[in-house]
């Protein structure tokens, strides 16, 4: 299945190949009010992009439109979202069902609210594997345990049989990531996925995402209000403000030499407090 171009020079192929995700002049509207005013960016296969901006910048809305689940009342009023070349605007529910899992998957801030509290986490993961991947019950269970193990969860057989309330926030987020990658997606969307976690657990989950990217050639769209989190994982950064892209570029360039005044303010705000300042105080 590998094209000769991909095999010979992945970097050239990434730029030459059709991008995995292409958002073009996206407008999102709630009633009479436009909230996102023409956002454009592309994501090449294997690439990681960070979507940053303050609350209200439209980063989560943009993400949810890409996932085909805009909040109630919000509609795409202009522009296109192309996933592997296909315009998702025309997608029927059945078509969405076909791409969610193998093409695109997501994790969010509050993992507990995405799990059924009355079913074991293994059962919920197994269900996805059976429905999405068509695995037989017994095979699905073995695959589920294997997935949980590869998320760095200790005693995965035991975790498989536990209920969400028995697991910590970090463990639940690993379970959600296991569910997200169970369909072997090309693109993982992570919206504030480590915001609610302790700093040590956050570091572990970011490490896990980095490992998954390397092992599975996973592309990543990371939404975060924390520039330091974006700096850990992303190749490029897209800065949103009031529903518009104010700047985008390679991560180091945007964070070290921000061109836009707003980006400069974001970086300055971030740097106003921090461990780095202690040494110089």
């Amino acid at each position: 299945m590998t094209s000769p171009l991909l095999a010979s020079d992945p970097a050239a192929a990434a730029s030459a190949a059709a991008p995995l995700l292409r958002v073009d002049d996206l407008h999102l509207t709630a009633g009479a009010r436009e909230l996102v005013h023409g956002v454009s960016f592309g994501l090449a296969p294997g690439e990681a992009i960070g979507l940053v901006g303050e609350s209200g910048s439209g980063k989560t809305l943009t993400c949810r439109a890409i996932l085909g689940v805009p909040p109630p009342g919000v509609t795409v009023s202009g522009g296109t979202i192309r996933l592997a070349g296909e315009d998702v605007a025309a997608y029927t529910r059945r078509q969405w069902d076909r791409v969610r899992g193998p093409r695109i998957a997501a994790v969010f801030q509050d993992p507990a609210s995405y799990l059924n509290p009355s079913l074991t986490v293994g059962r919920q993961l197994t269900e996805v594997l059976r429905v999405k991947n068509g695995l037989h019950r017994r095979v699905a269970r073995a695959r589920a345990v294997e997935l949980l193990a590869s998320m760095g969860l200790h005693r995965p057989e035991h975790v498989h049989d536990q209920y969400p309330y028995e697991l910590s926030g970090g463990m639940l987020q690993r379970v959600l990531i296991a569910i997200a990658v169970s369909g072997d997606p090309d693109l993982l969307v992570a919206d504030e996925a480590t915001t609610a976690l302790d700093v040590t657990v956050q570091a572990e989950v970011l490490d896990l995402i980095a490992t998954l990217r390397a092992e599975r050639q996973l592309s990543l769209l990371l939404v975060s209000h924390d520039l330091a989190v974006v700096a850990q994982l992303c190749d490029r950064v897209v800065v949103l403000r009031h529903g518009r892209v104010v700047e985008s570029g390679p991560t180091r360039q945007v964070l070290d030499e921000p061109a836009d005044p707003y980006t400069r303010a974001l970086v300055a705000d971030h740097r106003e407090y921090g461990l780095d300042r202690l040494a110089t105080r």
Binding site: V199, A203, L206, A210, A228, A231, Q232, L233, R252, H270
Partner: peptide, 14 residues
């Protein structure tokens, strides 16, 4: 303290 992410780039493990 070693877990704190920095805006200046990935921690060594990343």
């Amino acid at each position: 303290i070693a877990s704190v992410p920095s805006i200046d780039g990935p921690r060594p493990t990343y």
